[in-house]
Design a protein around this nucleic acid. Structure first.
Lengths: 337, 337
DNA sequence: GTGAAAGCGCTAACAT
DNA sequence: ATGTTAGCGCTTTCAC
């Protein structure tokens, strides 16, 4: 049974067992046409008897095709990336491709390493589900391998992108709050260092457009940052914002938590808006108004772009943008109601 | 630059460019000892100039070692598996191993396929972070490849396991509720079909031990199931449970939601306990009492078991069990307070 | 320390 | 329709 306790079972062994040539075994395995039914059956029986399993390393090496996309995921703890992953695998697999997943992270060295291992496995192309590094670094690492970046636009030859319209999404959020009568609207942004400035910029643009004074607090993408932000806002007495727009849902949860602790009512005293419309936003008792960037669709579009670039290398880079959508829930309400 | 627009850059090319033999290049790449510094520098320079990237397919094939663990993840949407994944990758990478992730699912065919692709990539061993299939199927597929199953025990030769003590965890939950004075304690279980009966059994055992009448509702591992369960419980008037213990946190959220909608107070009228102590349980306004199975530790222990089995094949299967811990939050309180 | 030669297990022409 | 023959790009003895 199988390979343990002896030599690995090869195609050659199967061929001998079935009384055919190795090439025929290969054809059967890849179920190629023009194989007589009785021979095919004999081969399959031999495979079964010997417990043969194809060596995909050897087959990929020999054929020089892997039919595999590499997927680099930024952060498994944020549900948004699970959605993106679903979109990517769905499209890839339905077109006969495999997906190799590697987990990156906010640490650029780790991210670099993860990408390298994907590339060394000779994947046909790479989907970057979030990317922290710089364009020049990416360009050097890819060295021409087709890729697509999701949620961020990067100008690298041969690299397409799909973004969720972050700037527009932020404006949606601000406009919504303004329409409800809010004027002191604060923003809990992402860390200053990360290459994702669009939501902050959208916020600033919208505030300027409405003639309002912006108020920023630098968060950290997690509840902790949201909590710290709200803490700061509340202690800065006399000028507590009536609404807070957060970089993502996780930050918004921290804001909610701090407000609860301080006995400040949501949405009556302070309205809160998140971003991502991740599963937590819709949870009971949370009811967080949030901007949906259509993460799953981003994954699907990205995979399609990549597959088409792989199919016909070269050509202009394509940069797609989805239209975000505001999902209104109980955490926002007209001021003074 | 790189491979595009020409032949793939091979080690041979690098050797020629650096004026050394191919073998030396190989040594440099794997940074083996005993390589003179000037030669090494020359090789690295050549690699850089040519944009060479090692072909991991070829190297793994030739060396017949991959130093890679396959990780089959059951469900990316449940935060528990993200925790397990972190534990596995942490241990694997800190010991110089790579991790190849594949996403399975509740569909057994999909799961089978995902596992097959991992095995065909010649991984040294497989971590099953959740597994829906049967032991005989697994045994056939593995055909001797070392593996470890997490959160479930399976009797297959060469397959270790790490479980979270589900039965005990369920008893902890029930005992806690009983201690608070509850007697009508219901359970929202997992689907009848899945191979994860231990929490239900623990619930039944604990109820029997306390001389209480069990009350089951079959959930589906998600909020939907929890909502349906609570709906059924509330409509069955005259005998509404005063406490509900749920298969997992997601189900518990559904229960909370339905209770909120019906205007039933938690924990005063009905107490709720979840399982997994996933990030959502600790969220603001949720405050769900939950059983922590130490998911990350399960991943770590699993990876360690697997690595040691790979290092010395054979030997008795080891089945470890972690001790679950009840994390009490605001969703449970003494009856009648 | 370094180079030459022999595969790793498979696929892809090509011949039969 | 089936068998034969070269490699795929690398690692690994084993001489030098």
């Amino acid at each position: 049974m199988g390979e343990r306790g002896g030599r690995r079972v090869t195609m050659e062994d199967v061929a001998a067992e079935a009384g055919v040539s190795r090439a025929l075994v290969s054809l059967v395995i890849r179920d190629a046409p023009h194989v007589k039914e009785d021979k095919r059956a004999a081969v399959l029986a031999a495979i079964d008897r010997l417990g043969y399993r194809r060596n995909s390393l050897a087959s990929r090496l020999a054929s020089r095709r892997t039919a595999t996309l590499g997927l680099l995921v930024l952060d498994l703890r944020n549900p948004v990336w699970a959605d993106v992953t679903e979109g990517v695998t769905e499209v890839a697999e339905s077109s006969g491709n495999h997906v190799l997943i590697a987990v990156g992270g906010f640490d650029e060295a780790r991210e670099r390493e993860a990408l390298a291992s994907l590339l060394e496995m000779q994947v046909d192309g790479v989907v970057l589900a979030g990317y922290m590094g710089r364009a020049s670094v990416l360009r050097g690492q890819l060295a021409g391998t087709p890729a697509v970046v999701l949620t961020r636009r990067l100008d690298v030859p041969g690299v397409d992108s799909v973004v969720g319209g972050d700037e527009q999404g932020a404006e949606l959020a601000v406009d919504h709050l303004v329409a409800l009568g809010h004027r002191r609207i604060a923003h809990v942004s992402g860390p200053a260092g990360i290459p994702y400035p669009a939501r902050r910029e959208g916020y600033l643009a919208a505030m300027a457009r409405h003639g309002l004074t912006p108020r920023l607090f630098e968060g950290d993408l997690t509840e902790t940052g949201g909590r710290a932000a709200m803490h700061a806002f509340l202690d800065d007495d006399g000028d507590v914002p009536t609404a807070v727009f957060c970089y993502n849902d996780l930050s918004a949860l921290g804001v909610l938590d701090e407000l609860d602790h301080r006995g400040v009512r949501v949405p009556e005293d302070v309205a809160v808006v998140g971003y991502d419309d991740s599963s937590v936003a819709a949870m009971p008792r949370i009811g967080l108004t949030s901007v949906d960037q259509h993460a799953r669709a981003i994954g699907e579009r990205g995979a399609r772009l990549l597959l088409s670039r792989i199919a016909s290398a070269g050509g202009e880079e394509r940069h797609e943008s989805l239209v975000p959508e505001l999902i209104v829930r109980g955490s926002t309400v007209a001021l003074g109601r």
